[in-house]
Write a protein that binds this DNA or RNA. Structure first.
Length: 400
RNA sequence: GGGCGUGUGGCUGAGCAGCAAAGGCAACAGACUGUAAAUCUGUCGGGUUCUACCCUUCGUAGGUGCAAGUCCUACCGCGCCCA
């Protein structure tokens, strides 16, 4: 892999670049749509390409469980297996340490949202529910050093998971993750890390960081292929730890860097934290922000020096009936859309907007027809990709 | 004409003496950021001083009873069977 920076903004940390891989070039900054199980749910690879997507990210943990990396390897690795000709990333499984661990214990599922929002959602009185569980307040939920999630064991070597599919015990550590990712064969792979939960306190995160840093070294050593390997910076919302992590990970011989975990209580804090990290990372190597990418966040994260970022929002929300448009988010399941004979977004020129109207999409969604989700997935990806494309243009013109 | 059965909130469908009435659907609202999924949560007869109180509801009209969607009588509607 080769990363070139074509232009550095004079008014922010934004950079315009391209990421060259065996499977083609990615113009950055760039959104990386999520294809956890080697598929962008509801779309086939050709359709994904038509949404202007340049690169996808799949998941080590889930592909290891099903169908297993051997199957993928035999098929000719991920690209051939899923018939995707452009670049690919695989995430290491570090996120599942959170989502299947403390995330699950705290009923967060995969929600690694901004801290305050989580806390207010966790307080049952906040959403009008009966208050018998009112004693479950944020402070009681702080995760202290030494704490373990209910369903997995995190130790210095790695993590003992339980398969959500069949309950099998399975161990994933840095070596295991790299081995699997080598067999999957993505262009860019990630070091195995612990994604710390938002309610983890300073001491917990500090201890976790020791593991993540140690694992990073093991991953570098373990990798035998010429796949690009990104190290992951953690440190949660704590400046000292973020800086420490960025210095440590940034000092290792990685091809690029992921930035993961939690990013504070507000959008402003997120930008702030990204800047702590960006300032410590080697300038010439690419940075990937893991899991963040609401439309309203994009400009800020790009201005903080992020080159690529993945996010489930466009695809996940699509399956919940939400379309992103220049008029904001629309919930196409609302009955009122049965009366709207107009495209999702009158300014959009994607295939869906050129050929379908809101009334039909609303009908499909209400009828539980998968094509409704598919049409929204296509549109949302196109919309997000176009949105980032415009940001690239702004960088070109020196506006950002 | 006779016999049996049945009528519950927008729909469906529990309840068979102490309920504004389970469940489901629909409707309405909200959430979702390295995907535990095509998910979850809340509201859902009306009104107020809304973690509480008041009013009106279970085909219609009477009756028994402290209390009736729940028991009794009549009527009306629907269903099946017999003439």
């Amino acid at each position: 892999m080769n990363f070139k920076i074509l232009k550095k903004s004079k008014i922010s940390r934004a950079r315009l670049g391209f990421l060259e891989t065996e499977h083609g070039v990615v113009e950055t900054p760039c959104l990386v749509p999520v294809a956890t199980q080697a598929v962008v749910k509801t779309l086939d690879s050709k359709e994904v390409e038509e949404t202007k997507s340049q690169i996808l990210i799949s998941n080590t943990f889930w592909l290891h469980l099903r169908p297993g990396e051997k199957v993928v390897e035999k098929a000719g690795k991920l690209h051939k297996f899923m018939n995707w000709k452009k670049p690919l990333m695989t995430d290491s499984g570090g996120y599942q340490v959170f989502s299947l661990g403390f995330g699950r214990d705290f009923g967060l599922g995969s929600k690694l949202a901004l801290g305050n929002e989580i806390f207010s959602r966790l307080d049952p009185s906040a959403d009008g529910a009966h208050s018998s569980r009112k004693n479950l307040l944020p402070r009681a939920m702080e995760i202290k050093a030494g704490a373990q999630p209910q369903n997995l064991i995190i130790n210095s070597d790695g993590v003992v998971f339980r398969s959500p599919i069949n309950g099998d015990e399975l161990f994933l550590g840095p070596k295991e993750s790299i081995k699997i990712q080598e067999k999957l064969g993505a262009d860019i792979i990630f070091a195995f890390d612990e994604c710390t939960p938002p309610m983890a306190d300073f001491d917990y995160v500090k201890k976790s960081l020791e593991k993540t840093h140690n694992w990073a070294k093991i991953c570098l050593k373990a990798k035998k292929t010429k796949q690009a390997l990104y190290g992951i910076v953690q440190g949660s919302r704590f400046k000292d730890l973020r800086v420490e992590s960025a210095k440590f990970i940034g000092g290792l011989n990685f091809d690029g860097f992921g930035i993961g975990g939690e990013f504070g209580n507000s959008k402003k804090e997120m930008s702030q934290m990204l800047q702590w990290v960006a300032d410590e990372l080697p300038e010439k190597k690419p940075r990937h922000l893991l899991g963040v990418g609401y439309l309203e966040d994009m400009e800020a994260i790009i201005k903080s020096g992020v080159d690529t970022f993945d996010c489930t929002v466009p695809t996940h929300y699509a399956r919940r009936g939400i379309a992103f448009t220049s008029e904001g988010k629309l919930n196409l399941k609302q009955t009122k859309f049965l009366k709207k004979i107009e495209p999702l977004d009158k300014n959009c020129v994607c295939n869906v907007c050129l050929n379908y109207k809101k009334d039909y999409i609303c009908h499909l969604l209400k009828a539980g027809e998968i094509t409704g989700m598919k049409l929204l997935t296509f549109h949302n990806l196109w919309y997000f990709n176009t949105f980032v494309e415009e940001i690239r243009n702004k960088i070109k013109k020196g506006e950002i």
